[in-house]
Design a protein around this nucleic acid. Structure first.
Length: 352
DNA sequence: ACCATTTGACCAGG
DNA sequence: CCTGGTCAAATGGT
């Protein structure tokens, strides 16, 4: 073949990986002075370019197909021919369910948890014809936000292939408006300040046992952000964490890890056993993004780290009711903790 | 007592 | 009646 996109992507990502290790080395070698920050910025910007190119290639290869119900799609969807009108042409008031189905979007992704929102798990159920339970999440950014999502790990994806998840989003997010109306004071804070605040909060949160995420998941934010301030936010967070100012959370005592992580329960939070715990987070205007980097330079994402293995218990489990005790600061990292991969295969996956 | 986690059951739709 | 989706109560750890 004259042109092998997989190979090119692999080279590109290898270059990005190399850059990221140099960036880490920069933080480790010395405190960041002005010059160090400039270097870090240069690395960061180069990373942005690498990742932008990678994302572009991935998109053109249609790695993660996304469909809306109602459109033609490759994803099997139950019959959703919801008539908006009766036979005589009258408008029929749709049921709640059909209304929700009209606002349904499906996505196949290896990394179902990073979509810019915080989610609260409210149910888990074994579904017929699936080896893996389905997990139910509601938006956790605002109590009255009706956005929900279902995550279904797909069968297959064993061996060296990444586990793929079918994520079904239901309802549009209204948390933005709800939050804006709830918290007028927050609007006084500049986006940058807010972003940094969340980033720092995320570092603290991570120190107390936040969940992990993948460097890969940062791509859209690195790319989407692009501005010097956001890069600086990421750099400063990375610096704080890599320099060791933030202690690493201890690994969970048991395995599989507890399905849910919470800010107040470090022991329940998930850190992959091989991850020695360099973790950091960047913010997406309220949505926390985190990653864990181990000493080998691999970034860990809990979902990426899970090996698709049959669940021991097939019965229904429902977790984490909020019980009106305030918001739960957790991501949906939990719930799919079926197993861990014994060795790094992410490189092979991500080339695949 | 508080809070995270688990369990069992209810409900609606097909 | 079955299944998917959701909820309230129970349980357990600190």
């Amino acid at each position: 073949m004259a042109f092998d996109p997989d190979s090119k992507l692999s080279d590109l990502l290898a270059g990005g990986y190399h850059l990221s290790t140099r960036l880490q080395a920069l933080f480790i070698s010395r405190p960041l002075d002005r010059r160090g920050q400039e270097e870090a910025m240069a690395f960061s910007q180069e990373l942005s370019r690498v990742f932008a190119a990678s994302m572009s290639m991935l998109n053109s290869n249609a790695v993660a197909p996304e469909v809306r119900t109602g459109n033609s799609s490759g994803v099997s969807t139950p019959a959703k021919d919801k008539r908006a009108r009766s036979d005589n042409g009258e408008v029929v008031t749709p049921s709640k369910k059909s209304r929700e189905e009209g606002l349904t979007r499906k996505e196949i992704t290896p990394s179902p948890h990073k979509d810019g929102y915080q989610w609260r798990k409210y149910g888990q159920k074994k579904i017929q014809n699936y080896n893996f339970s389905r997990y139910y999440f509601k938006c956790n950014r605002h109590r009255r936000c009706e956005a929900k999502k279902k995550v279904q790990q797909q069968d297959g994806g064993r061996g060296r292939l990444p586990p793929m998840f079918e994520v079904t989003y239901v309802n549009e997010h209204t948390c933005h408006e709800l939050r804006a109306s709830d918290d007028a004071a927050a609007r006084m804070v500049s986006p940058w300040t807010t972003s940094r605040h969340h980033a720092l909060a995320g570092v603290v949160d991570t120190a107390r046992g936040g969940d992990g995420g993948g460097l890969f998941d940062l791509l859209p934010h690195i790319i989407g952000g692009g501005c010097a301030e956001e890069n600086e936010a990421m750099v400063s967070c990375l610096a704080a964490v890599v320099s060791g100012s933030v202690p690493s959370p201890p690994p969970p005592s048991g395995w599989p890890p507890a399905p849910e992580a919470s800010a107040s329960d470090p022991g329940a939070s998930f850190v992959p056993p091989a991850a020695s715990g360099r973790s950091a987070s960047v913010a997406d205007d309220g949505a926390m993004m985190m990653m864990v980097v181990d000493d080998t330079g691999f970034s860990w994402d809990p979902w990426w780290s899970f090996c698709p293995v049959e669940e021991a218990a097939g019965h229904q489990l429902v977790t984490n009711r909020n019980q009106h005790h305030g918001p739960m600061h957790m991501d949906d990292a939990g719930g799919l903790a079926d197993a861990v991969w014994p060795e790094h295969t992410c490189g092979a996956w991500r080339r695949a």
